[in-house]
């Protein structure tokens, strides 16, 4: 019952801050409920899929998501995710905890930084070859954008995939970094496209986790239901409140959680 409420909060916070449900689910399960981190990762993967699919229904209608770009980069993330899920067997749990803490801090920093709003007018050769340039609708009409540094973006995506397979989170922050900073995609497009990819990436590693027995039904069902309900409420609330202040408070909180995870990891408390 508490788990259900907790997951609801996790989904709510995840969708309000744009970090995704998994990031909140893992510390909640491990630090508060004392669940083994491997079960927590399995549950977090489910949370990632649930938030991604839940939110995507809203975005596709607006036509912002760049499906071609998402599909192309999914080659990198799915391969990475499978590698990550395989690596997870051989990685000691305390190392996973330390890595998770570091990724958390990084994600918190990423949500606070300046966002790329400008659309590039000149793309690289590869971007034309792969038909990755696109456009999206705004209030002032359709904006066209072009891409560059596709190689760099593709490599960062592979890393993002490995991390998401290893830690069970969507690693949306890394995905946005690859698209925003390296490939110079406008923020709106990169956020929605990354959301589209998170579901597919998480599904690729979730199968491995499921077959390995990392997903427990007793933990799974409250997490799925809680996160879905939370994400739904979050998307409704988001229209009414200003998430910027909330985001800052949340980021400070998450840094503390991250430090706790790293500390426990070093102390071998998992």
């Amino acid at each position: 019952m508490i788990l259900l409420l907790g997951s609801y909060l996790a989904g709510l916070l995840g969708s309000l801050t744009g970090l995704g449900g998994g990031v909140v689910v893992i510390p909640l399960l491990t630090l508060v409920f004392g669940v083994d981190i491997r079960y927590a990762i399995g549950a977090a993967l489910l949370a990632s899929i649930a938030t991604s699919s839940g939110a995507a229904t809203a975005y596709v209608k607006e036509g912002i998501t760049n499906i071609r770009l998402g599909m192309f980069l999914e080659i990198a993330t799915t391969i990475g995710a499978v590698i990550g899920a395989l690596l997870a067997v051989y990685t000691p749990v305390n190392i996973i905890a330390i890595m998770f803490g570091s990724v958390l801090i990084f994600s918190a920093a990423m949500t606070l930084r300046k966002k790329n709003q400008d659309a590039l007018t000149e793309g690289s050769k590869l971007s034309y070859l792969l038909k990755l340039n696109g456009s999206y609708p705004t209030k002032d009409g359709v904006v066209n954008y072009k891409l560059k540094n596709i190689g760099a973006g593709f490599s960062i995506m592979t890393v993002a995939g490995v991390i998401s397979g290893l830690l069970g989170i969507g690693s949306g922050a890394l995905k946005v970094l690859a698209m925003d900073t390296a490939m110079r995609i406008p923020f709106k497009v990169s956020t929605t496209t990354s959301n589209f990819m998170i579901g597919v990436t998480a599904a690729a590693s979730a199968v491995v986790y499921l077959q390995r027995g990392y997903m427990d039904p007793g933990i799974g069902f409250p997490v799925i239901l809680g996160v879905l309900a939370g994400a739904f409420t979050g998307s409704k609330l988001l229209a009414r409140i200003n998430p910027q202040t909330l985001r800052i408070i949340f980021c400070v909180a998450i840094v503390f959680v991250a430090l706790q995870m790293i500390y426990n990891g070093i102390q071998h408390k998992f």
């Binding site: 489910l46 899929i49 699919s53 579901g199 599904a203 199968v207 499921l210 799974g220 069902f221 799925i224």
Partner: peptide, 13 residues
């Protein structure tokens, strides 16, 4: 419950 999990995983695929 696990069947529900399977359906959830199948959606993005």
């Amino acid at each position: 419950i696990q069947l529900g999990v399977l359906i959830l995983i199948a959606t993005p695929i």
